[in-house]
């Protein structure tokens, strides 16, 4: 177990390092950064000043080492636009994005798990077909468009929910649903296939031979064994949702990390962009690490 965790941690550290390089390379290799910062109306002299001020004339390796060294200490640089430390900007906006992601995941689990279980238990029936159809529809739904349609319909026509902002908790409902939509199909399919496999296992026959109730067989004996891939996919989906918050937050004008990132990209505030990419990647890595550990708790065979 200890070895397993150590191995995973080592891998996670390597991935972090790679992402660090990628997010640096992303902003430094794909175009003339100084020109991008200066904007379209800048003169050659402006660009030269910017190049000098930001240290962009130094060798890339030096720039990278400096940035990575600071990043490792939690200093992600300063925003050109806000003239403030990037870490502070992210910290201020993180609660909104996290709340949004967790709302989305909760809704997705609340809908995806029961429907997936139901489809598996009634495999091949009209209910199963119907549920799988829902999964297909959800998979094809463009999130940003669904958001707009909901704004028009629920916000404007029916006036049930606020159309933007998070002044009240209701502000999280629509974006939460839209985010959940992106995760439900995968969760549902995986729950279904995991449950079908588990329900066909010999130990389910044993449980039936013991006279256990149907509910107990499905929810205790089958679900526990089907849960592992679901936990993994839930973690991955939460990571994707946080990454996908760029789109949803700009649709609903939510002041989260995603919105910050979008704004920074548009306005060439590259230290922020770099930092958000790195930050989201680290969150994803931590989430999958947590999922692996949870699976070790779920499956005694992995603990040995």
């Amino acid at each position: 177990m200890v070895l397993f965790i150590l191995r995973r941690l080592w891998l996670a550290a390597l991935v972090c390092l790679t992402v660090l390089v990628v997010s640096f390379a992303l902003t430094h290799l794909s175009g003339d950064l100084a020109a991008s910062i200066a904007g379209p109306n800048a003169t050659a002299a402006d660009i030269a000043i910017i190049t000098k001020n930001y240290g962009l004339d130094r060798p890339l390796v030096v720039q990278f080492l400096e940035w990575a060294g600071h990043a490792a200490e939690g200093d992600l640089g300063r925003s050109f636009l806000y003239h403030a430390p990037v870490s502070g900007l992210i910290r201020d906006r993180l609660p909104v994005t996290l709340t949004l992601g967790l709302t989305g995941l909760s809704i997705a689990l609340l809908i995806g798990l029961p429907l997936g279980i139901l489809a598996a238990v009634r495999e091949g029936s009209a209910i199963d077909r119907g549920i799988m159809m829902v999964a297909l529809l959800g998979q094809a739904m463009p999130g940003f468009w669904l958001g707009l349609v909901m704004i028009v319909l629920l916000g404007l026509e029916l006036q049930w929910l606020p159309i933007s902002g998070v002044e009240t908790w209701q502000g999280y409902i629509m974006p939460g649903i839209v985010l959940a939509f992106s995760a439900i199909p995968a969760l549902m399919r995986l729950t279904r296939s995991g449950m079908i496999d588990a329900l066909a296992a010999d130990y389910i026959r044993t449980a039936r031979a013991k006279g256990l109730s149907r509910t107990k067989i499905i929810l205790k004996h089958a679900l526990r064994n089907a849960a592992m891939p679901v936990v993994s996919i839930a973690a991955v989906q939460l990571g994707f949702m946080l990454g996908g918050s760029v789109v949803i937050e700009s649709v609903f004008a939510l002041p989260g990390v995603g919105y910050l990132a979008w704004e920074s990209i548009i306005k060439n505030d590259f230290p922020v962009v770099q930092a958000v990419v790195l930050f989201l990647a680290v969150i994803y890595i931590v989430l999958t690490l947590l999922a692996d550990m949870m699976n070790a708790l779920l499956d005694p065979r992995l603990r040995a």
């Binding site: 891998l11 992402v19 991955v236 995603g258 990132a261 990209i265 990647a281 890595i285």
Partner: peptide, 23 residues
């Protein structure tokens, strides 16, 4: 390892950044 790295990179964000910088 490459697959893990690719998965941990936020897809939309990176795509947006590349398009913004390259044009």
């Amino acid at each position: 390892f490459l697959i893990t790295c690719r998965l941990s990179i936020p897809l939309i964000l990176v795509a947006l950044t590349v398009v913004a910088l390259v044009g």
